[in-house]
Design a protein around this nucleic acid. Structure first.
Lengths: 268, 268
DNA sequence: AAAGCAGTTTTCGCTGAGCGAAAACTCGAA
DNA sequence: TTCGAGTTTTCGCTCAGCGAAAACTGCTTT
């Protein structure tokens, strides 16, 4: 399913969008999504002519954002990497979350992730994958429904109630036999999440997966993000469950408090 | 010194470069370099009109590459971060180096870095900064001369001899009283580096800094990159010097062997 | 070794995207 | 209230950059 270059999702004035630049960015994103792709593959996926794709790739290459290999395939370049690193330093949430995620992964040996709500979806902002061979794999920028997983439910529980109404305005999609599909049950569970300040999800999205999520709240109790640990169900015996709950809760508090501090590189 | 958008450094055919896209990428890089900048600041630095800058920023914002704050300043956005992460997965060198750098930093408590040669300069590809307050700070994509520092000299020692000739064709810039400025001395030191498979640099670039670098070589002995640990001179007593030498050497070998292995996510 | 083919690179002329200049607006500061 | 620095919007004109198609490259097939 080739993603169109211009989804035109913006509400009013995208009349300022410079199409050539927009196409370049779309293409760049596309290069990031495919390991090593050829000109035709990319032009097909982007819905552009080969000519335009070729010209844009030359442009991206000159700036170091993509790398052209001898076999005429393209991948992201070093400039893309540098940009991303800079982004994670500039964005307070990512900057503060880096270490927290590192520790969470190392302390639990499972995949740790940071997610925010984006409309009616949860979006993964950052991940530290478990080093074990069997592990939960989460792709950066991956989206998921709000009624599934630990993160989804935490984000939902702490968002404005109108968000829940929107979610309930259409049927809750079933992913596994554990997925919550009843509105009443969802409301009850969310109440529980708010009470516990934590959400434990068992195989409600993928069979065999288990996740624990906690909200990251600002000083006014407003939701900023959700922090979670996820792994294969089998590895979570009662003792590990307890351990992970504590670790996730603590990590979320640590992150929250770091965000209140003088943001980054405090002056004077 | 405002960096012009089009340095036009390319040898022959940059006639394919799409200017609007090129300007967008230059602008994006610029946003990455300044913490939080305004429209006028950016348009000034990029050498573009405010109109064009405004339109390009709208475009970049719509794609999530930049974030517009309430106070009308811009910073990099989450899409930039995601792109960078993807780049480090796609580029075998960065992908393999990630863990190696993490360990090197944790084992030495000093800043660990990965650099490659780019023409007559050393470019920092990735860094893990020491967690100590007094530390060597290295910016991603930072460039340095080849006759200075541990990395510079390692990269020079293992590059084609013509590179050394180019370096010697102009006077060796002096940074501190420890900087090697004589061609003969440089040749001798490089010989030593090749013999040791390691380069130790003491305050030859910044007073008070100490660094140990080792080459990352492919199976044919061809230079790929240099791996280094750098920190304040005072923290390197003889015992720590010995320890770091061993750690850097081992890390470089580990990285080299990982690059020979099935690259990434081995299939089947 | 020739032909065929799939992909990439290059050319070229036409046209509307996107440029600059300037006007309009916004919002603090004086 | 005025002023001014910065941001947003408008508007015509023009050439950047588009698509189509030709040329080229280097496989694979016969």
């Amino acid at each position: 399913m080739p993603r169109e270059v211009k989804p035109s999702t913006s509400p009013v004035q995208d009349r300022y969008v410079v199409q050539a630049a927009d196409a370049a960015l779309a293409l760049l994103t596309l290069v990031g999504e495919h390991r090593r792709s050829s000109l035709t593959h990319l032009s097909g996926a982007a819905g552009l002519t080969t000519s335009q794709t070729f010209r844009l790739l030359v442009t991206l290459e000159q700036r170091g954002f993509v790398l052209r290999h001898e076999d005429k395939t393209y991948s992201l370049g070093y400039a893309a990497h540098a940009l991303g690193r800079r982004a994670s330093l500039q964005l307070p949430l990512l900057n503060a979350a880096g270490d927290v995620l590192d520790h969470l992964r190392d302390d639990t040996n499972e995949t740790a992730l940071l997610a925010v709500r984006n409309g009616l979806q949860a979006a993964v902002l950052d991940v530290r994958e478990s080093r074990q061979t069997v592990r939960v794999v989460a792709t950066l920028d991956e989206r998921g429904d709000l009624h599934i997983g630990g993160t989804g439910k935490v984000l939902l529980a702490y968002s404005d109630p109108t968000v829940l109404e929107h979610v309930l305005s259409r049927p809750l999609r079933r992913y596994t036999d554990q997925t919550i599909t009843s509105a009443d049950e969802l409301r009850t569970v969310l109440e529980q999440v708010r009470h516990d300040g934590l959400c434990v999800a068992r195989a409600d999205f993928e069979a065999d997966s288990y996740s624990v999520a906690a909200p990251v709240l600002d000083r006014h109790g407003q939701l900023i993000a959700a922090l979670a640990v996820a792994g294969p169900l089998a590895r979570f015996d009662p003792q590990q469950q307890e351990r992970v709950r504590t670790l996730v809760r603590t990590a979320a508090r640590t992150l929250a408090s770091r965000l209140e501090q003088p943001p980054v590189r405090p002056r004077s």
